[in-house]
């Protein structure tokens, strides 16, 4: 089950905790992976950890021209892109009344506009192949909102809407477009929280703990698989029951 031999996956934000685990999981299922991110050193380290089917394709998603070239670069590296995982994301948290136009725009540009651009660019190859998988990593806050994250919540909710629209356009061509919405996931970012902060967070999660990157990656693997061919326009929530939406 969930065998990806011969498939070629592009994962953005592959230097981060969740992105790296998604890349490992897809690779372990047999896929070739193109690892994208802004920091080249961790990408190169991950690529050498994985093996010869891993390729490093650095890209700064806040640069529109770089975004435009990423699918092409990944295609040159692997021969095509069958699976696109839009995982990269940034935060510029601030209360709405204090949020600057730049804080708003940066988050929309990277989390929403770059993902949309990559989806559009990837469609040509997937349409020709009559097979394609797009998995967008959104967030529980796209469904619930979160104080201080008006920009981030808007971008993630926007990505859900965009996914559903595209899913309808290309469903007849064997291409699915879905989202995985993680809740609190233990990564180097959450390691920085104090024990008190972690306890407070865990008390809001029915499962009583944060999720792991592996638990997010498993959902991505399913949606990337041939077995998930009849699921499209869906959002899989991986949040320990924190929000049942």
């Amino acid at each position: 089950m969930f065998e990806l031999t011969g498939k070629r996956a592009l994962v953005t934000g592959a230097s981060g905790g969740i992105g790296a685990e998604i890349a490992r999981t897809l690779y372990a299922a047999g896929a070739s992976v193109a690892l994208s991110g802004t920091r080249e050193a961790p990408l190169a380290a991950l690529a050498s950890e994985l093996g010869e089917r891993a390729h490093v394709v650095p890209c700064n998603l806040s640069d529109p021209e770089a975004v435009a070239g990423l699918i092409k670069t990944a295609t040159e590296a692997m021969g095509g892109v069958d699976i696109l995982v839009n995982n990269a994301g940034i935060t510029r948290d601030n209360l709405a009344m204090r949020m600057s136009d730049a804080e708003w725009q940066d988050v929309i540009d990277v989390n929403l506009s770059a993902s949309a651009k990559l989806m559009r660019a990837a469609m040509r190859g997937m349409m020709k192949a009559r097979w394609g998988r797009v998995v967008n990593i959104t967030s529980v806050v796209g469904a619930t909102g979160n104080p201080g994250q008006m920009n981030y919540a808007a971008a993630k909710a926007g990505l859900v809407g965009a996914s559903k629209a595209l899913a309808q356009e290309v469903a007849s061509r064997g291409i699915t477009v879905n989202c995985v919405a993680p809740g609190f996931i233990a990564t180097p970012m959450t390691d920085a929280l104090t024990e008190d902060q972690k306890t407070a967070i865990n008390s809001r999660i029915p499962a009583g703990r944060m999720g792991t990157p592996e638990e997010v990656a498993s959902a991505v693997l399913y949606l990337a698989s041939t077995e998930a061919g009849y699921m499209t326009g869906a959002v899989l929530h991986v949040n320990g029951g924190m929000a049942m939406v």
Binding site: R124, M127, K128, E169, V170, S172, R173
Partner: peptide, 9 residues
């Protein structure tokens, strides 16, 4: 409409 896009491609 999607067929026409594919034909152009």
């Amino acid at each position: 409409s999607l067929d026409t896009v594919e034909l152009v491609m």
